[in-house]
């Protein structure tokens, strides 16, 4: 009897390990990143991210730090709707309360995740007004047949740690 229980426990452990290990290999991910440097003469532009049905998860992250001017960033879905936006206004009033070593620098970040995202070209529209600084646009697409939320979150977390 003891041997039977022992064998059963071993079998369960083995099966669990196989499933966990196997599920870890099931997904495919595509990461893309683009860095932009803007100065006060930079014109507006649109960065396209092509989303196909090969992937069932999309995360877009835009982050920037600016020392001058202002910048409007909009994430637009393939239907033309603005999904998220933010504005950075650098410079302005620097009160004595705010640390002088970072005088005027302003940073902004937006991110949005979609399960089964709409197919087509997603746009990140950048509208600078005499903005000086840097911008990073990052997209992550994952294909995971199980679309298990916990698993996707874990992949995201790993990627987060990877991209810092």
């Amino acid at each position: 009897m003891k041997t039977l229980i022992k064998n059963a426990v071993c079998l369960i452990i083995l099966l669990t390990a196989v499933i966990v290990n196997g599920s870890g290999q099931e997904y495919v991910k595509l990461e893309r990143s683009r860095n932009l440097q803007l100065n006060n003469t930079s014109a507006g532009q649109e960065i396209s991210i092509n989303v196909t049905d090969e992937y069932n998860y999309l995360r877009i992250k835009v982050e920037g730090q600016f020392t001058m001017g202002s910048l409007l960033i909009e994430l637009i879905d393939p239907s033309g709707n603005i999904s998220r936006n933010f504005t950075i206004e650098a410079g302005g009033v620097n009160t004595s309360d705010i640390r002088a070593d970072r005088a005027g620098a302003v940073s902004g970040q937006m991110q949005k995740a979609f399960r089964n995202p709409a197919e087509g070209y997603w746009q990140v529209r950048i509208t600078p007004r005499k903005a000086t600084g840097s911008l990073r646009i990052y997209s992550l697409q994952i294909y995971n047949p199980r679309t298990d939320l916990i698993e996707l979150e874990q992949i995201e977390k790993d990627t987060d740690e990877h991209i810092g």
């Binding site: 992250k61 730090q65 998220r84 933010f86 950075i88 705010i98 640390r99 970072r102 620098a105 302003v106 940073s107 902004g108 970040q109 937006m110 991110q111 949005k112 995740a113 987060d160």
Partner: peptide, 13 residues
């Protein structure tokens, strides 16, 4: 390490 004027929209942060 980020400037005081710093805005993060969405995500865990």
């Amino acid at each position: 390490g980020d400037p005081p004027a710093s805005l993060i929209l969405g995500g865990r942060d």
